[in-house]
Amino acid sequence: MNLFNSILTSIVIVVIFWACAFFQTSIAHAIQHKEVGASLELSKKANAEKVKVHKTALDNAELVNESITKIINFSGIKQRIYLEDTPQLWQRFNSDTKIHKLLKQQPKQIFVTYSALSKDFKQADVAIGYNVIELSKFDSHHTIEMHRLKRLLAKGKYSDSALTDAWKSIDYNKAIDYVLEVHDLSNGTDIESTQLFVAYK
């Protein structure tokens, strides 16, 4: 191969491997959605079985298939607040231009975790953010281990009061690690549906 063709071939190789590195996020995202979708489908079936047996409010909580150990990392803002101040934290997140500038594409989901809940359940460390695979860079991130999640609310559109009521399904006899809200977005901004999970220690 002469020098010109060698350089040309090298450029093609660079484009191929750069594309692999670049589109891995989309591929991973697609796989992740498929797996989460599958896990929720499985949990739905599991829930149906449980409802038949127990018929209690708690039984509406669905167990996410424990064999799936998918990890989701998200990054955004985090603050220790009174839970009643959550709307203000959302406001801060929505107006945080720094994080929104780092989005590589229209975000598909927003993750919210409530961790380190105070004894009176009035305060928590609240983190709101996007999946890191949708961000070009980030300083720190929070990890969600899907297999640890117990579902409290199925995917759907809920009012704030319905979301608050769902917290009553939490088994407060167990030590809570965090409560997770997953908001699916349409057009990258509007919340289309929400799911609620809890992870016990």
């Binding site: 190789i13 750069w18 590195a21 670049f22 891995q24 890191v132 961000l135």
Partner: peptide, 15 residues
């Protein structure tokens, strides 16, 4: 700005 993970590192080593 590519994400930093094992796949990116592998692609970078090849390049």
């Amino acid at each position: 700005q590519l994400p930093i993970n094992g796949w990116t590192i592998l692609c970078c080593i090849i390049l």
